[in-house]
Simulated scan of single mutants.
Amino acid sequence: MRSSLLADAPAIREPQHVPVAHVTRGGVIEGVHYGSVVVLDGDGAVRWGIGDIEAACYPRSALKPVQAVAMVRAGLPLDGALLSLAMGSHSGEERHLAGTRQILERAGVTEDDLRNVPDLPYAAAVRDAWLREGRGPSRLAQNCSGKHAAMLYVCTLAGWPLESYLDPGHPLQRAIAEVVEELTGQHIASVTVDGCGSPLFAMSLYGLARAAARIATAAPDTAERRVADALRVHPEMASGTGRDSAELMRAVPGLLAKDGFEGVQVAALPDGRAVAVKIADGADRARMPVTAAALARAGVEPRLLAAFEGEPVSGGGRPVGGIRPVAALHPPGVPATA
């Protein structure tokens, strides 16, 4: 897509977030999570929004499906579970480590060629077992290792340098930036470094939802469709056992969903309806209840979303409250849960 067809980069400013979730205890609002939410119709128009959906924000790992599209276009020959892993924020389970090793082997490189930050497995139970075995941080265990292995694979196939594959000026990262702008429909506002070390691009929440919708609605035999099919069929490879984005995709037929650190979530349906959520304080506990409410706003049947309404708040060992989206988020005719 030519740059002349892109919208201006979103403004870099303090986002005008608003209350999106209440933490209640005994009928009293004990805490408030601020944020922003956008809901798109199937034609890409904004059906509903709250907060600041046009300010620049970092999508964090919610951008990984877009990065995967760029890698497939650049020649990444993965499909299915391994392609899902290439866009994953995995838990560090053995299937994730084995899959990453398989990608590295196909690329003819080793774990030593990875440039992501060494870390412990992301999932608490997996991390605890890892530590009991006396193992320390590693690049393979870090939750973005599948993406980094896929980046190396593309570089080996294209003849691009391996050592500098995370440099924003590297051919791979320039290709990713072009696809980010194409799918979001807007110029990138800023480039920084994500937690794993890869370039991270700032966009609006609206742009993020638009990109997800374009992937979710892609025609067969496109890079976008390969990415969408891989994530839908193998959601746990992009996350892990019991992870909420995977569970959400299992619950809502055809849904494409990806979460990111600092309270970001994007989800899109096969007909183009899409939502994007940013929780201002980065609190993970508010991300999924707000996302579920946004999907109900988009027309998803509330019964499919009942398991994602949020964890209860306990008092004396029993539920006395919960984390609930603000009333404005609930679609007309669907009562807010107290």
Rank of each mutant, 00 (worst) to 15 (best):
R2Q: 10
L5R: 13
I12M: 13
G31N: 13
V38C: 05
L40G: 04
D41I: 01
G42K: 11
A45R: 15
A45H: 12
R47C: 07
I50L: 14
A74E: 12
L78G: 06
G80L: 02
S84M: 04
S89V: 04
E94P: 12
V109P: 03
T110G: 13
T110R: 09
D112V: 07
N116T: 04
P118I: 03
D119W: 01
D128V: 14
R139Q: 13
C144H: 02
C144A: 07
W160Y: 13
D167C: 10
P168I: 04
P168L: 07
P171E: 05
E181C: 08
T184N: 12
T184S: 15
V191C: 13
V193N: 10
G195Q: 08
G197K: 05
L200H: 06
L205S: 09
Y206R: 15
R210N: 10
A213V: 05
A216N: 10
P220Q: 14
E224T: 02
V227N: 01
A228Q: 04
A230T: 05
A230F: 03
G240N: 01
R243Y: 10
E247K: 13
R250N: 06
L256E: 03
A257K: 06
D259R: 08
V275P: 02
V275K: 07
K278H: 10
D281P: 00
D281T: 11
R287S: 07
R287Q: 11
V290K: 00
V290F: 04
R297M: 14
R297I: 09
G299V: 12
R303L: 09
L305M: 11
A307T: 11
F308D: 03
V313F: 07
G315L: 15
V320I: 13
G322Y: 04
R324I: 12
V326S: 09
A328R: 13
A328W: 00
L329P: 00
L329V: 06
P332H: 11
V334A: 05
